[in-house]
Simulated scan of single mutants.
Amino acid sequence: MASSQLILILAVFVATSSLVFASDPSPLQDFCVADPNCTVKVNGVVCKDPKVVTVDDFFFSGLDKAGNTSNAVGSKVTAANVVQIPGLNTLGISLARIDYAPWGINPPHTHPRASEILTVLEGTLLVGFVSSNPENRLFTKVLYKGDAFVFPVGLIHFQQNIGYGPVVALAALSSQNPGVITIANAVFGSNPDIPANILAKAFQVDEATITKIQSKF
């Protein structure tokens, strides 16, 4: 009985420990500024020598500037993550500015390492996310200036400007490097291509349709 209880306690400890560490690493010092010149590969970025850290390692300028939305989807993401701000390393946060042309979209995508909270700074934005199988439930809402909306980690989500003027939104994410997987790009623009017969069966269309879509990516 005692050994069974011990195994149960250990199992609970392992499970809770996995939850605790299933996020960006926590800092064990005041800061761990990313050293982009280091060739050592770790789960994150190696710390720069604190003696050579400067105030600019914690600074980024440019989120006041509109992104160029002259593209196929009509949106532009300006990221402010550990690549742009080395001082974010180990802090588990990042930002992004998203600009949308009239009726532009931020296509369905996921962030594999972060939840997101998005705030509309200007305009009207339709947002939504889909829960996982088997429900695949769509949660969608129209946001106005000053509104905020949360996208849970890993779930497919999207935004669309449903007004006649530009929209600006600011997204905060719970990772220094949240990553992004744009669904259409990943499925139809992989390198090399996913075999057309597989996608044809998955999407229940003919192979010619799949090949035509792949040619656009």
Rank of each mutant, 00 (worst) to 15 (best):
L143D: 01
E135D: 15
Q159C: 02
P50R: 12
A72S: 13
T110F: 00
Y144W: 05
A184N: 07
L121F: 04
V82E: 13
F31T: 12
V12W: 04
V77K: 03
K65R: 15
I210Y: 06
F60V: 08
V42C: 10
A172M: 04
F217K: 06
V55Q: 13
F151Y: 13
V20E: 11
T124F: 02
V142P: 05
V120M: 02
E122T: 07
F60E: 06
D56Y: 07
N37W: 03
F149Q: 00
Q84T: 01
A196W: 04
A22K: 04
V52H: 04
D193K: 12
V33D: 11
I9M: 12
V130E: 00
P152W: 03
N106P: 05
T78E: 06
L199D: 04
F58E: 15
A184S: 10
K141Q: 15
K76E: 11
D30R: 14
L91W: 01
G67T: 09
P152F: 04
I198Y: 06
Q204E: 14
T140G: 01
D206F: 02
V205Y: 05
P108D: 01
L173H: 00
V120P: 01
P152A: 02
S132D: 15
E116N: 07
L173C: 00
E135P: 07
K51C: 02
D206I: 06
